[in-house]
Design a protein around this nucleic acid. Structure first.
Lengths: 207, 207
DNA sequence: TCACAGTAGTTAACAGTGTTAACTTACGAA
DNA sequence: TTCGTAAGTTAACACTGTTAACTACTGTGA
């Protein structure tokens, strides 16, 4: 798991991502990866400690890609927090739908697999959340958003987006519902939930 | 997959759920289930077509349990849509956290597994969403909520809850964030996003 | 009472999995 | 030319889901 993968590591990662996209997670095996790249299965173990380490490398790459696409949104809307947040939400969902194979490895693998994901890498993953938190803080500063704790609000916003992406990827959304309408509704609901409610507010009791 | 499981089916289902809760999905095998109940592995195939069918039966049970707990909330708050919706959200998340083994099988297994999930059973699963849609429609009728399409809004609300549960189960929420605060923030954000915004509204541009 | 059918279970086997140990082969330096 | 190292291999182990073939038991009809 070096910062810059070697040539064969690069080939292995690409083949894995390819098979993942084509045949899904359950149909992926070390032997199939090996066959695809024309090496024996054990060769992979010379370049990655085990299957988990291979996945972790993919997660790392995915987090980096996600960050780059979110960061470009971040800079593009640097002076408009609400629009920026909306664009960040859109981009996040789009990333999940454009690269489901990355998204699955990054966020949908079962907990048992993920537990071994090294803490150091979590830091890189957290940068993505920071972009959301930043937008929220800027929004609060400008008075166009109202949140108590930007980290918590960033996490709950992320949860809404994550739920949206996973339901779409897993095809659990009612077939009669238009995907675009669903996505727009999810983003709107999350955003409206963050706007300030200035006046005597409707009966939303605290429980 | 009969409506009422036979005795041994019942024993198998309970053992499976138990092992699932204790050791997780990746450590579950037909042979381990068999060992736990004191039969040979092939015996399970006399009572369930295959591993997927066994999971489908668990999903079915889980959907039923979820419905029962949501329905009790539904009747309890029959005349207060906003409070009802808030309670439904709480109950949904609580179900996921109380019975993660059910929740994982129901909503977190990989798409490839789920595709074979028979369409007829989806109908039973959809009843859960209907309770959310009902609360939204009642809220709109009473003028305390504002949504364009109750099925879409129910789905996006579900997405937010689903994201919240899965991130918690998979332990992907930043360790420094209090779970209760996270859950409350997620529910509040979803609910506030459904309330009517009566006055000339802040700059939330349509994109 | 005896033969038979059906039920509920078994063992043995197949093809596939992640992973390791032991072996080979090629190459560059002393 | 020898030696060490790097990069690959094959064979094997202990698993996995699943099937085929077999056994034991139970109840029924003649």
């Amino acid at each position: 798991m070096p910062d810059r993968p070697t040539d064969l590591q690069r080939v292995i990662l690409d083949a894995t991502r390819n098979l993942l996209a084509r045949n899904g997670y359950t149909n992926l095996s070390m032997r199939k990866i090996a066959k695809k790249i024309g090496y024996s299965a054990t060769t992979i173990y010379l370049h990655f400690e085990n299957k988990d380490a291979l996945f972790h490398a993919l997660i790392d790459e995915g987090m980096h890609r996600l960050y780059e696409s979110l960061y470009s949104v971040h800079t593009q809307y640097s002076d408009a927090p609400v629009e920026r947040l909306r664009a960040l939400c859109r981009q996040y969902i789009q990333f999940g739908l454009d690269e489901p194979e990355y998204y699955e490895v990054m966020f949908m693998l079962h907990p048992e697999h993920m537990e071994r994901y090294p803490a150091a890498k979590y830091r890189r993953a957290r940068r993505n959340l920071d972009l959301f938190a930043q937008a929220l803080e800027d929004g609060v500063t400008e008075g166009v958003m109202a949140v108590q704790n930007s980290r918590v609000a960033a996490s709950s916003t992320w949860a809404a987006l994550h739920g949206t992406v996973t339901l779409l990827i897993a095809q659990r959304v009612d077939a009669r519902i238009d995907h675009e309408a669903f996505i727009t509704a999810a983003i709107d609901q999350a955003l409206y939930g963050l706007l300030p409610r200035t006046h005597a507010d409707p009966a939303v009791p605290k429980t």
